[in-house]
Computed example of a mutant assay.
Amino acid sequence: MTFQIGATAPDFEAETTEGPIRFHDWIGSSWALLFSHPKDFTPVCTTELGTLARLKGEFDKRGVKLIGLSVDPVTKHSLWAEDIRETQGVAPNYPLIGDTDLKISKLYNMLPESTSGDANNRTAADNATVRTVFIIGPDKKIKLALAYPMTTGRNFDEIIRVIDSLQLTAKHRVATPANWRQGEDVIIAGSVSDDEAKTIYPNGWKSPKPYIRIVPQPK
């Protein structure tokens, strides 16, 4: 249901808990994390919003702006924020979009274009597919899209790990292996020929197979 990696993230105007925005202008030259929720006052999403608020400093360090979306109105988001503060210890410290006309949910293919009706009368089950994470680069291209079931809370440590990988590979012609973490070895990208690699990595590389060229993470 989601857009393919490399597609331009659709632009839109929206009301948020921090005022009106135009999405691409709001991103500016930063990275962005857009994450959606099927309904306010739902248990799993409540834990997610609080967790993300606690982790905001980690995203700030990486130049990543956070923005959430739910089909409920901004006024209800503000009430939900009090529950999140009470149960999770911290309220959202990033904007939440009120997508009451379902326009953005449909624009991002999280709901079928044929979906209609008053958002207030829709249940979380009606909006079950509005549980997606998009990582968007400064070029406004989608770098990652993940869709989650309602019963599985999102792993934001993994999302931070992916952002670290994306930002590293945006600067250097490398890829990151399974379970990679900051500071660990990386793989020279397949687009780099051996002759080029010898110039970039004069100390050479480990190569258990000719197509696997392992080097320390670039600084």
Rank of each mutant, 00 (worst) to 15 (best):
I142G: 07
W205P: 10
E82D: 12
R154I: 12
T47Q: 07
Q217K: 05
R213H: 05
R213D: 00
D185K: 09
G57V: 10
T46I: 14
G190N: 12
S70T: 13
R122E: 05
A189T: 13
G153S: 12
T47K: 13
S30L: 01
Y108A: 07
G117E: 08
N120V: 13
P95K: 09
D83K: 04
F156L: 00
I160T: 10
I200N: 03
K206E: 02
W80R: 02
A9K: 03
E58H: 09
A189Q: 11
F12L: 12
G68C: 03
G6P: 03
S29T: 15
F41W: 04
P92Y: 01
S116G: 11
A125D: 14
L79S: 07
K141M: 13
P218E: 08
F23I: 10
F23K: 01
K56V: 06
K140I: 12
K198D: 01
V192I: 14
L168T: 07
I21K: 06
D195W: 00
C45E: 02
G204M: 07
P112E: 03
E13V: 14
K106V: 03
P149C: 10
L111A: 05
T176A: 01
S105N: 12
N127K: 09
M110W: 04
D72M: 03
P218W: 02
L69Y: 04
V133D: 01
G204C: 01
R22F: 00
V64A: 11
P20S: 11
V44T: 08
E196R: 03
S36T: 15
G50V: 06
T8N: 12
P112Q: 03
P177F: 03
S29E: 13
N93I: 14
D25K: 11
S36F: 06
T87L: 08
W80P: 02
R54I: 07
T42C: 00
L79Q: 14
V162S: 06
D139N: 14
G137W: 09
T169I: 02
P95Q: 11
S29V: 11
Y211T: 00
R154Y: 09
I188V: 15
D11K: 10
V186I: 10
I142C: 00
W180M: 03
P20Y: 04
G57E: 09
A178F: 14
E13L: 02
I160V: 15
A147S: 15
Q182E: 05
P38E: 04
Y108D: 05
V74M: 13
D195G: 00
E82S: 06
I5T: 14
Q4C: 07
